[in-house]
Design a protein around this nucleic acid. Structure first.
Ligand SMILES: NC(=O)c1ccc[n+]([C@@H]2O[C@H](COP(=O)([O-])OP(=O)(O)OC[C@H]3O[C@@H](n4cnc5c(N)ncnc54)[C@H](O)[C@@H]3O)[C@@H](O)[C@H]2O)c1
Ligand SMILES: NC(=O)c1ccc[n+]([C@@H]2O[C@H](COP(=O)([O-])OP(=O)(O)OC[C@H]3O[C@@H](n4cnc5c(N)ncnc54)[C@H](O)[C@@H]3O)[C@@H](O)[C@H]2O)c1
Lengths: 216, 216
DNA sequence: TTGCATTTGTTACCTTTTTCACAAAATCGA
DNA sequence: TCGATTTTGTGAAAAAGGTAACAAATGCAA
Protein backbone atom coordinates (compact mmCIF):
# COMPACT_ATOMS: atom_id res chain seq x y z
CA UNK A 1 0.00 0.00 0.00
CA UNK A 2 2.84 2.38 -0.82
CA UNK A 3 1.33 5.80 -1.20
CA UNK A 4 3.37 8.17 -3.32
CA UNK A 5 2.10 11.34 -1.67
CA UNK A 6 3.03 11.35 1.99
CA UNK A 7 1.51 14.07 4.12
CA UNK A 8 3.70 16.17 6.35
CA UNK A 9 1.55 15.16 9.31
CA UNK A 10 2.65 11.60 8.66
CA UNK A 11 6.36 12.40 8.43
CA UNK A 12 6.17 14.50 11.59
CA UNK A 13 4.75 11.48 13.38
CA UNK A 14 7.54 9.29 12.01
CA UNK A 15 9.94 11.55 13.95
CA UNK A 16 7.93 10.91 17.07
CA UNK A 17 7.84 7.15 16.50
CA UNK A 18 11.61 7.18 15.98
CA UNK A 19 12.09 8.95 19.29
CA UNK A 20 9.88 6.39 21.05
CA UNK A 21 11.75 3.50 19.48
CA UNK A 22 15.08 4.95 20.57
CA UNK A 23 13.78 5.03 24.10
CA UNK A 24 12.52 1.45 23.91
CA UNK A 25 15.78 0.26 22.34
CA UNK A 26 17.81 1.86 25.10
CA UNK A 27 15.68 -0.08 27.58
CA UNK A 28 16.64 -3.27 25.78
CA UNK A 29 13.17 -4.04 24.47
CA UNK A 30 13.23 -6.34 21.43
CA UNK A 31 9.70 -6.10 20.02
CA UNK A 32 6.76 -3.77 20.43
CA UNK A 33 3.17 -3.83 19.19
CA UNK A 34 1.43 -0.75 17.84
CA UNK A 35 -0.95 -1.03 20.78
CA UNK A 36 1.79 -0.96 23.43
CA UNK A 37 3.52 1.88 21.60
CA UNK A 38 0.27 3.81 21.48
CA UNK A 39 -0.62 3.29 25.14
CA UNK A 40 2.84 4.10 26.40
CA UNK A 41 3.34 7.29 24.39
CA UNK A 42 -0.26 8.47 24.10
CA UNK A 43 -0.68 7.81 20.42
CA UNK A 44 -3.29 6.01 18.31
CA UNK A 45 -2.38 2.48 17.30
CA UNK A 46 -4.31 2.51 14.03
CA UNK A 47 -2.54 5.69 13.03
CA UNK A 48 0.87 4.20 13.77
CA UNK A 49 0.11 1.18 11.58
CA UNK A 50 -1.30 3.33 8.80
CA UNK A 51 1.64 5.75 8.85
CA UNK A 52 4.11 2.88 8.64
CA UNK A 53 2.10 1.18 5.90
CA UNK A 54 2.90 4.11 3.60
CA UNK A 55 6.49 2.86 3.42
CA UNK A 56 6.22 -0.91 3.54
CA UNK A 57 5.35 -3.84 5.78
CA UNK A 58 7.59 -3.68 8.81
CA UNK A 59 5.63 -5.72 11.34
CA UNK A 60 4.99 -9.39 11.97
CA UNK A 61 1.40 -10.36 12.73
CA UNK A 62 0.97 -11.77 16.17
CA UNK A 63 4.37 -10.36 17.21
CA UNK A 64 4.49 -6.64 16.45
CA UNK A 65 7.55 -4.72 15.28
CA UNK A 66 11.20 -5.50 15.97
CA UNK A 67 12.35 -2.37 17.78
CA UNK A 68 15.84 -2.08 16.31
CA UNK A 69 14.72 -2.97 12.83
CA UNK A 70 11.91 -0.43 12.81
CA UNK A 71 14.20 2.22 14.28
CA UNK A 72 16.69 1.62 11.47
CA UNK A 73 13.95 1.72 8.85
CA UNK A 74 12.60 5.02 10.17
CA UNK A 75 16.09 6.46 10.36
CA UNK A 76 16.57 5.58 6.71
CA UNK A 77 13.14 6.84 5.61
CA UNK A 78 13.73 10.18 7.34
CA UNK A 79 17.12 10.51 5.68
CA UNK A 80 18.85 10.55 9.04
CA UNK A 81 21.41 8.00 7.90
CA UNK A 82 23.02 10.86 5.94
CA UNK A 83 24.75 13.75 7.63
CA UNK A 84 23.33 17.22 7.05
CA UNK A 85 25.32 20.41 7.19
CA UNK A 86 23.50 23.51 8.37
CA UNK A 87 24.21 27.16 7.59
CA UNK A 88 22.60 29.78 9.81
CA UNK A 89 22.02 33.24 8.34
CA UNK A 90 21.84 35.89 11.07
CA UNK A 91 24.39 35.61 13.88
CA UNK A 92 22.21 37.42 16.42
CA UNK A 93 20.88 36.06 19.67
CA UNK A 94 18.77 33.31 18.12
CA UNK A 95 21.42 32.37 15.56
CA UNK A 96 24.00 32.11 18.33
CA UNK A 97 21.72 29.98 20.51
CA UNK A 98 21.12 27.62 17.59
CA UNK A 99 24.81 27.52 16.60
CA UNK A 100 25.88 25.53 19.62
CA UNK A 101 22.63 23.68 20.20
CA UNK A 102 23.60 20.12 20.95
CA UNK A 103 20.19 18.91 19.76
CA UNK A 104 21.43 19.33 16.20
CA UNK A 105 24.31 16.91 16.55
CA UNK A 106 22.09 14.32 18.22
CA UNK A 107 20.16 13.92 15.00
CA UNK A 108 22.94 13.91 12.42
CA UNK A 109 22.99 17.67 11.80
CA UNK A 110 26.17 19.77 12.07
CA UNK A 111 26.16 23.55 12.09
CA UNK A 112 28.88 24.30 9.55
CA UNK A 113 28.74 28.10 9.33
CA UNK A 114 27.06 31.29 10.49
CA UNK A 115 26.51 34.26 8.17
CA UNK A 116 25.92 37.91 8.98
CA UNK A 117 25.87 41.29 7.26
CA UNK A 118 27.27 43.20 10.25
CA UNK A 119 31.05 43.80 9.76
CA UNK A 120 31.43 43.75 13.55
CA UNK A 121 30.30 40.13 13.66
CA UNK A 122 32.04 38.75 10.58
CA UNK A 123 35.12 36.75 11.56
CA UNK A 124 33.87 36.06 15.08
CA UNK A 125 33.73 32.54 16.43
CA UNK A 126 30.52 31.40 18.17
CA UNK A 127 31.11 28.10 19.92
CA UNK A 128 32.73 25.94 17.25
CA UNK A 129 31.33 27.93 14.38
CA UNK A 130 32.78 30.83 12.41
CA UNK A 131 30.76 33.83 11.24
CA UNK A 132 31.16 34.57 7.52
CA UNK A 133 30.13 37.54 5.42
CA UNK A 134 26.69 36.81 3.99
CA UNK A 135 27.93 38.29 0.71
CA UNK A 136 30.02 35.14 0.29
CA UNK A 137 27.14 32.84 1.15
CA UNK A 138 27.04 30.91 -2.10
CA UNK A 139 30.77 30.28 -2.17
CA UNK A 140 31.06 29.18 1.47
CA UNK A 141 27.88 27.11 1.25
CA UNK A 142 29.39 25.16 -1.60
CA UNK A 143 32.78 24.78 0.11
CA UNK A 144 31.16 23.63 3.36
CA UNK A 145 28.64 21.32 1.60
CA UNK A 146 25.74 23.05 3.32
CA UNK A 147 22.40 21.44 2.46
CA UNK A 148 20.12 23.01 5.10
CA UNK A 149 19.75 26.75 5.74
CA UNK A 150 18.29 28.47 8.79
CA UNK A 151 16.96 32.03 8.52
CA UNK A 152 17.53 33.98 11.76
CA UNK A 153 17.54 37.57 10.48
CA UNK A 154 14.94 40.28 11.18
CA UNK A 155 11.67 39.78 9.30
CA UNK A 156 12.23 42.48 6.68
CA UNK A 157 15.39 40.75 5.43
CA UNK A 158 13.99 37.23 5.43
CA UNK A 159 12.67 37.18 1.85
CA UNK A 160 15.88 38.46 0.19
CA UNK A 161 17.90 36.04 2.33
CA UNK A 162 15.66 33.20 1.20
CA UNK A 163 16.33 34.14 -2.41
CA UNK A 164 20.07 34.11 -1.73
CA UNK A 165 19.72 30.63 -0.23
CA UNK A 166 17.66 29.48 -3.19
CA UNK A 167 20.19 30.79 -5.69
CA UNK A 168 22.90 28.82 -3.89
CA UNK A 169 20.91 25.68 -4.72
CA UNK A 170 19.88 24.81 -1.16
CA UNK A 171 16.57 22.95 -1.03
CA UNK A 172 15.70 22.84 2.68
CA UNK A 173 15.15 25.97 4.75
CA UNK A 174 13.96 26.63 8.26
CA UNK A 175 12.71 30.16 8.90
CA UNK A 176 12.40 31.78 12.32
CA UNK A 177 11.47 35.25 11.09
CA UNK A 178 7.81 35.91 11.90
CA UNK A 179 6.67 36.44 8.36
CA UNK A 180 5.37 34.20 5.59
CA UNK A 181 7.87 33.69 2.78
CA UNK A 182 7.52 32.71 -0.85
CA UNK A 183 9.78 29.88 -1.93
CA UNK A 184 10.17 28.00 -5.21
CA UNK A 185 8.32 24.74 -5.74
CA UNK A 186 11.46 22.71 -5.34
CA UNK A 187 12.43 24.28 -1.99
CA UNK A 188 11.08 22.92 1.28
CA UNK A 189 10.44 25.80 3.65
CA UNK A 190 9.41 25.41 7.28
CA UNK A 191 8.50 28.55 9.17
CA UNK A 192 8.50 28.47 12.95
CA UNK A 193 6.51 31.52 13.90
CA UNK A 194 6.74 32.27 17.59
CA UNK A 195 4.33 35.18 17.32
CA UNK A 196 1.52 32.95 16.12
CA UNK A 197 2.15 30.46 18.92
CA UNK A 198 2.17 33.19 21.53
CA UNK A 199 -1.00 34.78 20.22
CA UNK A 200 -2.63 31.37 20.26
CA UNK A 201 -1.85 31.15 23.99
CA UNK A 202 -3.24 34.64 24.46
CA UNK A 203 -6.46 33.63 22.72
CA UNK A 204 -6.82 30.69 25.06
CA UNK A 205 -6.33 32.89 28.12
CA UNK A 206 -8.97 35.29 26.81
CA UNK A 207 -11.63 32.56 26.65
CA UNK A 208 -13.98 32.42 29.62
CA UNK A 209 -13.64 29.14 31.52
CA UNK A 210 -16.44 26.68 30.84
CA UNK A 211 -18.97 26.05 33.64
CA UNK A 212 -17.52 22.61 34.42
CA UNK A 213 -14.14 24.18 34.96
CA UNK A 214 -12.63 22.80 31.77
CA UNK A 215 -11.50 24.92 28.89
CA UNK A 216 -11.11 22.50 26.09
CA UNK B 1 -23.02 31.94 12.89
CA UNK B 2 -21.05 31.98 16.14
CA UNK B 3 -19.40 28.61 16.50
CA UNK B 4 -18.53 27.64 20.05
CA UNK B 5 -15.66 25.35 19.16
CA UNK B 6 -12.95 27.28 17.36
CA UNK B 7 -10.16 25.26 15.82
CA UNK B 8 -6.58 26.19 16.51
CA UNK B 9 -5.98 26.43 12.78
CA UNK B 10 -8.53 29.22 12.73
CA UNK B 11 -6.99 31.16 15.62
CA UNK B 12 -3.56 30.78 14.08
CA UNK B 13 -4.91 32.39 10.94
CA UNK B 14 -6.44 35.22 12.96
CA UNK B 15 -2.87 36.08 14.02
CA UNK B 16 -1.89 36.23 10.38
CA UNK B 17 -4.86 38.40 9.46
CA UNK B 18 -4.02 40.75 12.30
CA UNK B 19 -0.48 41.09 11.01
CA UNK B 20 -1.79 41.87 7.52
CA UNK B 21 -4.23 44.46 8.85
CA UNK B 22 -1.47 46.16 10.82
CA UNK B 23 0.49 46.47 7.62
CA UNK B 24 -2.49 47.87 5.72
CA UNK B 25 -3.32 50.29 8.53
CA UNK B 26 0.24 51.61 8.58
CA UNK B 27 -0.14 52.30 4.87
CA UNK B 28 -3.21 54.38 5.64
CA UNK B 29 -5.68 52.05 3.97
CA UNK B 30 -9.24 52.52 5.28
CA UNK B 31 -11.12 49.48 3.96
CA UNK B 32 -10.17 46.13 2.49
CA UNK B 33 -12.15 43.30 0.92
CA UNK B 34 -11.46 39.66 1.68
CA UNK B 35 -10.49 39.30 -1.96
CA UNK B 36 -7.83 42.01 -1.87
CA UNK B 37 -6.52 40.69 1.44
CA UNK B 38 -6.31 37.21 -0.02
CA UNK B 39 -4.57 38.24 -3.24
CA UNK B 40 -2.08 40.48 -1.50
CA UNK B 41 -1.03 38.05 1.22
CA UNK B 42 -1.52 34.75 -0.61
CA UNK B 43 -4.56 33.62 1.36
CA UNK B 44 -7.99 32.27 0.41
CA UNK B 45 -10.80 34.82 0.56
CA UNK B 46 -13.50 32.29 1.48
CA UNK B 47 -11.40 31.12 4.36
CA UNK B 48 -10.88 34.63 5.65
CA UNK B 49 -14.63 35.28 5.63
CA UNK B 50 -15.37 31.94 7.24
CA UNK B 51 -12.78 32.40 9.97
CA UNK B 52 -14.13 35.85 10.81
CA UNK B 53 -17.71 34.60 10.75
CA UNK B 54 -16.93 32.46 13.79
CA UNK B 55 -16.77 35.61 15.87
CA UNK B 56 -19.40 37.91 14.38
CA UNK B 57 -20.21 40.03 11.35
CA UNK B 58 -17.43 42.52 10.87
CA UNK B 59 -17.79 43.40 7.20
CA UNK B 60 -20.11 45.57 5.14
CA UNK B 61 -21.42 44.02 1.94
CA UNK B 62 -20.27 45.88 -1.14
CA UNK B 63 -17.55 47.62 0.89
CA UNK B 64 -15.46 45.04 2.71
CA UNK B 65 -13.93 45.44 6.16
CA UNK B 66 -12.88 48.66 7.86
CA UNK B 67 -9.18 48.06 8.44
CA UNK B 68 -8.84 49.72 11.84
CA UNK B 69 -12.09 48.29 13.12
CA UNK B 70 -11.23 44.75 12.10
CA UNK B 71 -7.75 45.12 13.52
CA UNK B 72 -9.20 46.19 16.86
CA UNK B 73 -11.71 43.33 16.82
CA UNK B 74 -9.00 40.75 16.14
CA UNK B 75 -6.78 42.28 18.80
CA UNK B 76 -9.63 41.87 21.27
CA UNK B 77 -10.54 38.35 20.15
CA UNK B 78 -6.93 37.22 20.49
CA UNK B 79 -6.74 38.74 23.96
CA UNK B 80 -3.95 41.08 22.86
CA UNK B 81 -5.68 44.06 24.45
CA UNK B 82 -4.46 42.67 27.78
CA UNK B 83 -0.83 42.59 28.75
CA UNK B 84 0.73 39.19 29.36
CA UNK B 85 3.65 38.56 31.67
CA UNK B 86 5.99 35.73 30.73
CA UNK B 87 8.19 33.61 32.99
CA UNK B 88 10.95 31.59 31.32
CA UNK B 89 12.18 28.48 33.10
CA UNK B 90 15.74 27.59 32.06
CA UNK B 91 18.18 30.48 31.72
CA UNK B 92 20.41 28.69 29.21
CA UNK B 93 21.17 29.75 25.67
CA UNK B 94 17.61 29.54 24.41
CA UNK B 95 16.13 31.09 27.55
CA UNK B 96 18.57 33.98 27.28
CA UNK B 97 17.80 34.54 23.59
CA UNK B 98 14.09 34.63 24.36
CA UNK B 99 14.53 36.90 27.40
CA UNK B 100 15.48 39.93 25.41
CA UNK B 101 13.58 39.08 22.25
CA UNK B 102 11.93 42.31 21.17
CA UNK B 103 9.24 40.34 19.33
CA UNK B 104 7.59 39.70 22.67
CA UNK B 105 7.07 43.34 23.52
CA UNK B 106 5.67 44.07 20.07
CA UNK B 107 2.69 41.89 20.83
CA UNK B 108 1.86 42.90 24.39
CA UNK B 109 4.06 40.32 26.12
CA UNK B 110 6.67 41.23 28.72
CA UNK B 111 9.29 38.81 29.98
CA UNK B 112 9.00 39.32 33.73
CA UNK B 113 11.41 36.73 35.09
CA UNK B 114 13.83 33.91 34.30
CA UNK B 115 14.19 30.84 36.51
CA UNK B 116 17.04 28.36 36.81
CA UNK B 117 18.24 25.58 39.08
CA UNK B 118 21.94 26.35 38.63
CA UNK B 119 23.21 28.38 41.64
CA UNK B 120 25.79 29.97 39.33
CA UNK B 121 23.01 31.57 37.29
CA UNK B 122 20.60 32.59 40.04
CA UNK B 123 20.84 36.31 40.72
CA UNK B 124 22.27 37.10 37.29
CA UNK B 125 20.68 39.75 35.09
CA UNK B 126 20.04 38.86 31.43
CA UNK B 127 19.09 41.97 29.50
CA UNK B 128 16.38 43.57 31.62
CA UNK B 129 15.41 40.34 33.31
CA UNK B 130 16.58 38.82 36.59
CA UNK B 131 17.24 35.09 37.08
CA UNK B 132 15.45 33.62 40.09
CA UNK B 133 15.79 30.27 41.85
CA UNK B 134 13.27 27.90 40.29
CA UNK B 135 12.52 26.67 43.83
CA UNK B 136 10.75 29.99 44.42
CA UNK B 137 8.81 29.78 41.17
CA UNK B 138 5.33 29.84 42.63
CA UNK B 139 6.02 32.79 44.90
CA UNK B 140 7.76 34.93 42.27
CA UNK B 141 5.18 34.01 39.63
CA UNK B 142 2.45 35.32 41.87
CA UNK B 143 4.37 38.46 42.81
CA UNK B 144 5.20 39.20 39.17
CA UNK B 145 1.67 38.36 37.92
CA UNK B 146 3.07 35.84 35.45
CA UNK B 147 0.34 34.28 33.29
CA UNK B 148 2.43 32.61 30.57
CA UNK B 149 5.30 30.18 31.16
CA UNK B 150 8.03 29.11 28.72
CA UNK B 151 9.87 25.84 29.25
CA UNK B 152 13.51 26.08 28.12
CA UNK B 153 15.14 23.35 30.20
CA UNK B 154 16.64 20.05 28.95
CA UNK B 155 14.03 17.50 27.90
CA UNK B 156 14.34 15.25 30.95
CA UNK B 157 13.33 18.11 33.28
CA UNK B 158 10.46 19.41 31.18
CA UNK B 159 7.67 17.31 32.70
CA UNK B 160 8.49 18.11 36.36
CA UNK B 161 8.87 21.78 35.43
CA UNK B 162 5.46 21.68 33.75
CA UNK B 163 3.96 20.30 36.94
CA UNK B 164 5.57 23.12 38.90
CA UNK B 165 4.06 25.62 36.49
CA UNK B 166 0.67 23.95 36.73
CA UNK B 167 0.73 23.99 40.53
CA UNK B 168 1.41 27.72 40.41
CA UNK B 169 -1.92 28.11 38.59
CA UNK B 170 -0.51 29.15 35.22
CA UNK B 171 -2.76 28.12 32.34
CA UNK B 172 -0.67 28.87 29.24
CA UNK B 173 2.66 27.19 28.54
CA UNK B 174 5.04 27.16 25.63
CA UNK B 175 7.48 24.26 25.58
CA UNK B 176 10.75 24.17 23.61
CA UNK B 177 12.02 20.89 25.01
CA UNK B 178 11.84 18.23 22.29
CA UNK B 179 9.51 15.90 24.14
CA UNK B 180 5.74 15.52 24.37
CA UNK B 181 4.35 16.58 27.73
CA UNK B 182 1.19 15.73 29.62
CA UNK B 183 -0.74 18.73 30.87
CA UNK B 184 -4.03 19.09 32.69
CA UNK B 185 -7.22 19.72 30.70
CA UNK B 186 -7.35 23.31 31.82
CA UNK B 187 -3.78 24.11 30.74
CA UNK B 188 -2.98 25.16 27.18
CA UNK B 189 0.34 23.69 26.14
CA UNK B 190 2.13 24.48 22.89
CA UNK B 191 5.22 22.49 22.08
CA UNK B 192 7.65 23.85 19.51
CA UNK B 193 9.71 20.86 18.59
CA UNK B 194 12.72 21.78 16.50
CA UNK B 195 13.78 18.16 16.11
CA UNK B 196 10.57 17.26 14.32
CA UNK B 197 10.91 20.24 12.00
CA UNK B 198 14.51 19.37 11.19
CA UNK B 199 13.73 15.73 10.55
CA UNK B 200 10.92 16.81 8.28
CA UNK B 201 13.47 18.75 6.22
CA UNK B 202 15.73 15.72 6.22
CA UNK B 203 12.89 13.55 4.91
CA UNK B 204 12.30 15.99 2.09
CA UNK B 205 15.98 15.98 1.10
CA UNK B 206 15.95 12.18 1.09
CA UNK B 207 13.15 12.03 -1.49
CA UNK B 208 14.28 11.54 -5.08
CA UNK B 209 13.39 14.53 -7.26
CA UNK B 210 10.42 13.96 -9.54
CA UNK B 211 11.06 13.60 -13.29
CA UNK B 212 9.69 17.07 -14.05
CA UNK B 213 12.13 18.59 -11.60
CA UNK B 214 9.50 19.38 -8.98
CA UNK B 215 9.36 17.77 -5.59
CA UNK B 216 5.95 18.63 -4.30
C1' DT C 1 -35.29 56.21 -7.13
C1' DT C 2 -33.56 52.49 -9.92
C1' DG C 3 -30.37 49.41 -11.75
C1' DC C 4 -25.65 47.85 -11.63
C1' DA C 5 -21.46 46.52 -9.44
C1' DT C 6 -19.45 44.90 -5.37
C1' DT C 7 -18.71 41.96 -1.50
C1' DT C 8 -20.24 39.69 2.52
C1' DG C 9 -22.12 35.60 5.13
C1' DT C 10 -23.33 31.04 4.53
C1' DT C 11 -24.54 26.77 2.56
C1' DA C 12 -23.22 22.92 -0.08
C1' DC C 13 -19.55 20.33 -1.80
C1' DC C 14 -15.08 18.38 -1.91
C1' DT C 15 -10.64 16.87 0.12
C1' DT C 16 -7.82 15.36 3.79
C1' DT C 17 -7.15 13.19 8.09
C1' DT C 18 -8.42 10.26 11.78
C1' DT C 19 -10.69 6.40 13.78
C1' DC C 20 -12.99 2.04 13.64
C1' DA C 21 -13.39 -2.70 12.62
C1' DC C 22 -12.02 -7.03 10.92
C1' DA C 23 -10.04 -10.61 7.78
C1' DA C 24 -5.57 -12.52 7.16
C1' DA C 25 -1.24 -13.90 9.02
C1' DA C 26 1.72 -15.40 12.48
C1' DT C 27 2.95 -17.58 17.12
C1' DC C 28 2.51 -20.91 20.74
C1' DG C 29 0.95 -24.53 23.85
C1' DA C 30 -1.00 -28.90 24.03
C1' DT D 1 -1.47 -30.79 13.87
C1' DC D 2 -4.88 -27.80 15.64
C1' DG D 3 -7.24 -24.30 17.96
C1' DA D 4 -6.71 -20.21 20.71
C1' DT D 5 -4.51 -15.84 20.82
C1' DT D 6 -2.23 -11.99 19.19
C1' DT D 7 -1.51 -8.31 16.09
C1' DT D 8 -0.82 -6.57 11.58
C1' DG D 9 -2.45 -4.26 7.25
C1' DT D 10 -6.28 -2.16 5.16
C1' DG D 11 -10.93 -0.87 3.53
C1' DA D 12 -14.87 1.61 5.17
C1' DA D 13 -16.90 5.21 8.11
C1' DA D 14 -16.55 9.39 10.51
C1' DA D 15 -14.66 13.78 11.50
C1' DA D 16 -12.31 17.85 10.32
C1' DG D 17 -10.82 21.19 7.25
C1' DG D 18 -10.84 23.81 2.91
C1' DT D 19 -12.99 25.66 -1.46
C1' DA D 20 -16.59 27.19 -4.43
C1' DA D 21 -20.74 29.26 -5.40
C1' DC D 22 -24.48 32.30 -4.65
C1' DA D 23 -28.42 34.84 -2.45
C1' DA D 24 -28.75 38.87 0.29
C1' DA D 25 -27.12 43.27 1.42
C1' DT D 26 -24.95 47.52 0.46
C1' DG D 27 -23.11 51.54 -2.09
C1' DC D 28 -23.03 54.36 -6.08
C1' DA D 29 -23.92 56.48 -10.51
C1' DA D 30 -27.26 58.28 -13.29
N1 LIG E 1 15.58 36.03 19.81
C1 LIG E 1 14.62 35.12 19.88
O1 LIG E 1 14.44 34.51 20.91
C2 LIG E 1 13.75 34.82 18.71
C3 LIG E 1 12.74 33.87 18.85
C4 LIG E 1 11.93 33.56 17.76
C5 LIG E 1 12.12 34.21 16.56
N2 LIG E 1 13.09 35.14 16.44
C6 LIG E 1 13.25 35.78 15.12
O2 LIG E 1 14.53 35.41 14.63
C7 LIG E 1 15.11 36.49 13.93
C8 LIG E 1 16.39 36.89 14.60
O3 LIG E 1 16.13 37.27 15.94
P1 LIG E 1 17.29 37.73 16.92
O4 LIG E 1 16.66 38.00 18.23
O5 LIG E 1 18.42 36.79 16.84
O6 LIG E 1 17.70 39.13 16.25
P2 LIG E 1 19.10 39.87 16.38
O7 LIG E 1 18.85 41.29 16.03
O8 LIG E 1 19.77 39.52 17.65
O9 LIG E 1 19.98 39.21 15.22
C9 LIG E 1 19.72 39.40 13.84
C10 LIG E 1 21.06 39.28 13.11
O10 LIG E 1 20.82 39.27 11.71
C11 LIG E 1 21.83 40.05 11.09
N3 LIG E 1 21.35 40.47 9.78
C12 LIG E 1 20.50 41.47 9.46
N4 LIG E 1 20.30 41.49 8.14
C13 LIG E 1 21.03 40.50 7.59
C14 LIG E 1 21.21 40.03 6.28
N5 LIG E 1 20.58 40.57 5.23
N6 LIG E 1 22.04 38.98 6.10
C15 LIG E 1 22.66 38.41 7.14
N7 LIG E 1 22.51 38.80 8.41
C16 LIG E 1 21.71 39.85 8.63
C17 LIG E 1 22.09 41.18 12.05
O11 LIG E 1 23.35 41.76 11.83
C18 LIG E 1 21.99 40.45 13.40
O12 LIG E 1 23.23 39.94 13.80
C19 LIG E 1 14.07 37.60 13.93
O13 LIG E 1 13.30 37.53 12.75
C20 LIG E 1 13.23 37.27 15.13
O14 LIG E 1 11.91 37.77 14.98
C21 LIG E 1 13.90 35.45 17.49
N1 LIG F 1 19.55 26.21 22.10
C1 LIG F 1 18.69 26.13 21.13
O1 LIG F 1 18.88 26.77 20.11
C2 LIG F 1 17.44 25.32 21.25
C3 LIG F 1 16.55 25.30 20.18
C4 LIG F 1 15.36 24.56 20.29
C5 LIG F 1 15.07 23.88 21.44
N2 LIG F 1 15.95 23.87 22.45
C6 LIG F 1 15.58 23.15 23.67
O2 LIG F 1 15.43 24.09 24.70
C7 LIG F 1 15.87 23.55 25.92
C8 LIG F 1 17.00 24.40 26.45
O3 LIG F 1 18.05 24.43 25.50
P1 LIG F 1 19.38 25.27 25.76
O4 LIG F 1 20.23 25.12 24.54
O5 LIG F 1 19.04 26.64 26.21
O6 LIG F 1 20.06 24.44 26.94
P2 LIG F 1 21.08 24.97 28.05
O7 LIG F 1 21.76 23.78 28.58
O8 LIG F 1 21.90 26.09 27.49
O9 LIG F 1 20.15 25.59 29.16
C9 LIG F 1 19.31 24.84 29.99
C10 LIG F 1 19.17 25.56 31.32
O10 LIG F 1 18.17 24.93 32.10
C11 LIG F 1 18.64 24.90 33.45
N3 LIG F 1 17.90 23.86 34.17
C12 LIG F 1 18.11 22.52 34.18
N4 LIG F 1 17.19 21.90 34.94
C13 LIG F 1 16.39 22.86 35.44
C14 LIG F 1 15.27 22.84 36.29
N5 LIG F 1 14.76 21.70 36.76
N6 LIG F 1 14.68 24.00 36.61
C15 LIG F 1 15.17 25.15 36.11
N7 LIG F 1 16.23 25.24 35.30
C16 LIG F 1 16.84 24.10 34.96
C17 LIG F 1 20.11 24.67 33.35
O11 LIG F 1 20.77 25.11 34.52
C18 LIG F 1 20.46 25.54 32.14
O12 LIG F 1 20.78 26.87 32.50
C19 LIG F 1 16.31 22.12 25.62
O13 LIG F 1 15.25 21.25 25.89
C20 LIG F 1 16.60 22.17 24.15
O14 LIG F 1 16.42 20.90 23.56
C21 LIG F 1 17.12 24.61 22.39
Amino acid sequence: MKADKISELTTNRLSIYLRCLNELASEGRKTVSSDILAKRFHLNSAQIRKDLACFGEFGVRGVGYYVENLRDQLTRILGLDHHHRVGIIGAGRLGAALADYYGFTQTNFTVAALFDADPGKIGEQIGEVKVYDVANFSKIAKKESIDVAVIAVPAQFAQPVLELISKAGIKAVMNFAPTPLLAGEDVKLKTIDLTISLESLSYFLAQPALPNGQQK
